[in-house]
Each structure stands twice: as C-alpha cells, then as structure tokens.
C-alpha cells in the first residue's frame, strides 16, 4: 500500500540547513527500511499553470487551480503495510522537515 505525505507550507524552498540535514537523515533511514518510493520539493504555486483540455482546445491559465495561503510544498510517497506505519513515518517526516504534513492513501 502506498501513502502520499504532503508537506504543508506557506513558503517555497524554505528549509533551513539544519532542517535539510534532518530531512536527508530521515530519507536515508526510510530508504534503508524499505519504505521509500519517491519524494520531492515543489516550486511555488506562482510557477504553476492550469491546463483545461476537456473541450479539446487546450486552455492555459497562469497560477495554481486554487489560491491558498498554505499549499503543497513537497511530498513523500511511502510504501507501508498499513496506516499505523504510515502515520509513524509521517510523524517522523513532520519532525524532520519541521512542517505540518498530511497523509493520504493511494486508491
């Protein structure tokens, strides 16, 4: 089972050097324990483009699909047998990156 752990922030690429060290150490452990699938940080919502090609005539709109003060600043995808394991990983991730995170299971 895979879980996406979203990092909530109101700034982009805002991790301090200490936080980066903690995140890297956490990532190494996640890999060693076999939970790692993917992770990445995202550029700011200002760099987003919304595309609507439902009508076959692609329409491009500058900006994110919804403007919010806080947004998805990065994410992990973990492999975990159940929510308890995913919650533990997410809790450690939240501590490492010093941000709030949200856990959602993949379908």
């Amino acid at each position: 089972m895979q879980y996406m752990v979203s990092v909530v922030d109101d700034k982009t690429n805002s991790a301090t050097p200490d936080e980066m060290t903690a995140i890297n150490a956490f990532n190494d452990r996640v890999k060693a324990e076999g939970h790692w699938v993917f992770a990445g940080g995202l550029n700011s919502p200002a760099t987003a483009t919304v595309i609507d090609n439902r009508g076959g005539d692609a329409l491009f709109t500058d900006g994110p699909f919804v403007e919010t003060k806080e947004y998805l600043a990065g994410f992990w995808v973990f492999e975990a047998p159940d929510l308890d394991v995913a919650l533990k990983l997410a809790a450690e991730g939240s501590k490492a990156c010093n941000r709030r995170v949200e856990v959602r299971p993949f379908l």
């Binding site: 089972m1 047998p81 308890d84 995913a86 959602r104 299971p105």
Partner: peptide, 8 residues
C-alpha cells in the same frame, strides 16, 4: 476511511 486508509 478504515478501509481506504488501511487502519489495521
């Protein structure tokens, strides 16, 4: 939620 998120 128990089912979808796999609450054990």
């Amino acid at each position: 939620k128990i089912k979808g998120a796999r609450i054990p």
